[in-house]
Design a protein around this nucleic acid. Structure first.
Lengths: 246, 246
DNA sequence: CAATAATGTGTTAGATTTACACATTAAACA
DNA sequence: TGTTTAATGTGTAAATCTAACACATTATTG
């Protein structure tokens, strides 16, 4: 947080004309969206990065971002930019935080709104022909362009918090998954080891898993049962996940 | 959330000049901050509202907001605007969410970043001379100007969530408070009734309360003990409040 | 067909939450 | 002045949830 200004004057009531002139004059700022897209593959949490737009910074990786158009809703801009950068739509996007220090971007004053997304790597096919897009293991993400490392860190923390409040992780898995897959996912996101038996009990007690009466195929050891997530049941009980204690 | 655009083209790598021209040209948007300031008085949760800046809308109440300057950090703008509108600084401000639908403001395209604040009503003296500032019971807040009702609702929900993760509520109380004061606060914020004995146990077990060996004065029944909050102890153990379960 | 490395299922001790009961204290009032 | 009243302050027991841990089962591997 920045230091508050020490002196400030009281603002008088304004007319609509005064406000409009302020909105239309030089008091305008470039606004961008950056998409932080998490995926899951090979039992590791990944994030989708692109070689920096800026040739000068092309040795660094950056988040998927672009400017918001003045005629475009902020959320719509996030979906547009995600589609432009990855070729994909139909992905859940959630606003995380807005970053607005004056010198955060080399091209001038750009305030950016970070949107977070959880994507099923297997399920969606990326359009990477004209983009230098790559899935990076989140553990190896360092030294991103501009302030993107800070944005990424914030979003990863937010993700870690969210998956403990809501079972969002299912978006990262294939439709059919084993409990081992699910546990690997949580271990990767939270970067901790969990007890297999307690983990299993916890999810069964939530009662969101539907037993598909199918088994894993092509695994090198005893296959596990496959499950799917009951989104309908989850939606009905969404409220219950809101609070803690009290 | 808005509908994603159905068609989108792949963006090529850009030069810094291209980006700079985009940042400098018409792709700019007015950015504002709105401050949602919660206080606590008479065992009720309050929010600070102001008669709309706009004469045309002066029959409605609105949040404390203003435009961000292009040369100003976003967080700094929030503190400046809070000071301009209330005369006060030294209040904890936290970014909550950014609202960016195209037609949210009558003066034109204005994207606004909501900042939430918890203020001790007794402790701070408002400068309300030139402003039509009033503390409103949150339960009676309806029909704010523009989309301010939506912003307010979001912030109240965020507050309810936060006070269950961190003992932020102390910012709303006087330095010395009774356990009844504290419980009234939580009941007002969460809009629920709590068991007095369990509430007491919970806070004592957190070990953040310092017994001042003083009693309430001028209460019409048996006075309760007064306590203060041990901010230092809280800071040391902040991490522990981050997660739930797992 | 034995060894291996997973899956699948309990069980138990400890901690936490929830629901209550009763004694204590000071103000209010007859 | 003493009784009533309405708070504060403390405790306890049942129920629930968490954490730590053991063993049988199953398919693959060699």
């Amino acid at each position: 947080m920045s230091t508050p200004e020490k002196t400030a004057q009281i603002k008088p009531t304004k007319s609509l004309q005064v406000i409009q002139s302020e909105v239309e004059n030089t008091n305008r700022i470039a606004l961008s969206v950056d998409c932080i897209i998490f995926g899951f593959d090979e039992a590791k949490l990944k994030v989708l990065l692109i070689r920096s737009d800026l040739k000068k910074y092309s040795s660094k990786w950056s988040l998927l971002g672009d400017l918001v158009f003045p005629s475009e809703d902020l959320d719509a801009a996030a979906y547009r930019i995600l589609k432009q950068r990855t070729g994909l739509s139909d992905v859940y996007l959630e606003q995380v935080n807005t970053f607005g220090t004056v010198n955060r971007h080399p091209a001038g004053r750009v305030v950016t709104v970070a949107y977070c997304s959880l994507m099923n790597v297997q399920h969606h096919k990326l359009n990477i022909l004209d983009n230098e897009l790559h899935w990076h293991d989140v553990k190896s993400v360092t030294d991103l362009a501009f302030d993107h490392q800070q944005i990424f860190d914030t979003c990863l923390q937010q993700l870690q918090k969210r998956v403990q409040e809501h079972p969002l992780g299912f978006n990262l898995l294939p439709k059919k998954f084993s409990l081992r897959d699910l546990q690997n996912l949580y271990e990767a996101i939270l970067d901790i080891k969990l007890d297999r038996r307690n983990f299993r009990k916890k999810f069964f007690s939530m009662d969101f898993l539907v037993d598909l009466n199918e088994m894993e195929q092509d695994v090198s050891h005893r296959p596990g049962k496959l499950y799917k997530f009951d989104y309908e049941k989850y939606e009905k009980r969404k409220k219950k996940f809101a609070g803690i204690d009290f």
